[in-house]
Design a protein around this nucleic acid. Structure first.
Lengths: 102, 102
DNA sequence: TTAACATATGAACATATATTCATATGTTAA
DNA sequence: TTAACATATGAATATATGTTCATATGTTAA
């Protein structure tokens, strides 16, 4: 952790930046439970499928989500288990009472 | 994880967005080892102290870092242990071989 | 083939934000 | 008090980026 190369820092920042938009974060959360198709994400989150597709492209490029085509539809799901770990840690951070020393 | 309120989503996104900038991320990493003063961060990262201070303000407001004044200097350090957990998980995500099913 | 559906993409625009510069505030020593 | 140092902040600007709209690509059924 102490030694983090500039290369890794850029990759890390890219990942965090992608999760740092509420729309994209909601899309990621929608994909964590089970694989879900683009249109279903759009319906569930009340977004245009164009917008969802734009975001999915970025999330897939960063290997946060992976795509699986089944016929006409493309199902998206978490690329690995680390993202949910990150989200769990961040939720714990939010739950941490302000000003408490740990 | 399944149920994440809109309120929590906004807080989560705020935290990720803050870590999603390379300059701010480097500042956070510089504060993880031990408390460090503003000017020392600026020197170590070759940044202006003005820029560092601007970023520290945001990081402190999000309770990612906490401030401790000692005389003229203000030392910054991690607010709690969750952030380093998040960073460790994200580094693991980066280290994950592409295309591997987990 | 054509038609209908599902997803993806390029351009344009509006908004957000990282950085710089100047200045202000706070702290300690003389 | 003044001077020197350390940190913080406000305004301005340049850049990045989320969203929309139009259109393209890919897939299946008739």
């Amino acid at each position: 952790m102490t030694m983090t190369s500039e290369n890794h820092i850029m990759l890390l920042a890219d990942l965090f930046r992608l999760l740092g938009d509420t729309t994209r974060l909601r899309i990621v959360l929608a994909c964590l439970d089970a694989p879900i198709a683009v249109n279903d994400i759009a319906t569930r989150l009340a977004l245009s499928s164009s917008l969802v597709s734009h975001h999915l492209r970025l999330l897939r490029a960063a290997r946060i989500l992976k795509a699986d085509r089944q016929g006409k539809q493309v199902f998206y799901s978490a690329a690995d288990q680390h993202i949910s770990g990150v989200l769990a840690d961040m939720l714990a951070h939010i739950a941490e009472p302000a000003g408490e020393e740990v």
